[in-house]
């Protein structure tokens, strides 16, 4: 048993709360996500300022094609729902269903990334062309990094919920809940990003 668990054990005893009490690990994660969100907020602020005050050189393109990102938005929104299904299933002790939903979510994440790469390769500008291009790549790239990490974590937990011998069960939901929260967060950021970058 790790000392982290020990001290949690002790704290549970301290508080006199039985199993299933409010878990502060999730609280820690939320704090972290707020911090992560602030990084994005900084990028967004920079982007909006550039857009407001820095004229682009003549001929710079910053009209973006909409189909792929729209598809990506839909993919991510669906993936949030499927993840939710996965955690519902696990709560109902249906580990196999849960695993299936998780894999489906991960698949959506991967498709998202592929689409994103496809978009990158077909864009008429590259990273260093102009301010808009650089900010575009910085924002979507940073978000893509989050999706990549999330997908990896989903794959890991989908392995761990396997019905025989997995570490996760309805009694130990925390890792799944944590990744779910993270995934919703990444989705939310994408929606903001989509609105600011593609629609505005």
């Amino acid at each position: 048993m790790t000392s982290l668990d020990t001290s949690k054990e002790l704290n549970k005893k301290d508080k006199g709360i039985e199993e299933g009490h409010e878990d502060f690990r999730l609280f820690g994660l939320i704090t972290f996500l707020i911090a992560d969100g602030m990084t994005f907020a900084g990028f967004f602020a920079a982007y909006l300022t550039y857009k407001a005050v820095n004229p682009l050189p003549d001929g710079a393109i910053y009209e973006l094609e909409l189909p792929i990102p729209t598809l990506n938005t839909i993919l991510l929104l669906i993936s949030s729902a499927t993840f939710h299904k996965a955690s519902k299933s696990l709560l109902n002790k249906k580990n196999n269903d849960s695993q299936r939903w998780l894999l489906f979510t991960a698949l959506l994440g991967i498709i998202f990334l592929v689409c994103q790469l496809f978009e990158y390769f077909n864009l008429p500008f590259s990273l260093t062309d102009n301010l808009f291009a650089s900010t575009f790549y910085a924002l979507t790239g940073f978000h893509g990094l989050h999706v990549t990490l999330g997908t990896l974590m989903i794959l890991i937990i989908s392995w761990q919920v396997r019905s025989n011998g997995g570490r996760l069960s309805h009694l130990n939901m925390f890792p799944l809940e944590a990744v779910e929260l993270y995934w919703h967060f990444v989705d939310g950021i994408w929606v903001i990003l989509f609105i600011i970058l593609y629609l505005l």
Binding site: G37, A41, F43, A46, T128, L131, A138, F142
Partner: peptide
């Protein structure tokens, strides 16, 4: 602090990747 982190990442792009933030 995360805002500083983001800013410094952009700055490092300017230094090594020749972007123009």
């Amino acid at each position: 602090t995360p805002v500083l982190a983001g800013t410094l990442i952009l700055l490092s792009f300017d230094i090594v990747a020749n972007t123009g933030f």
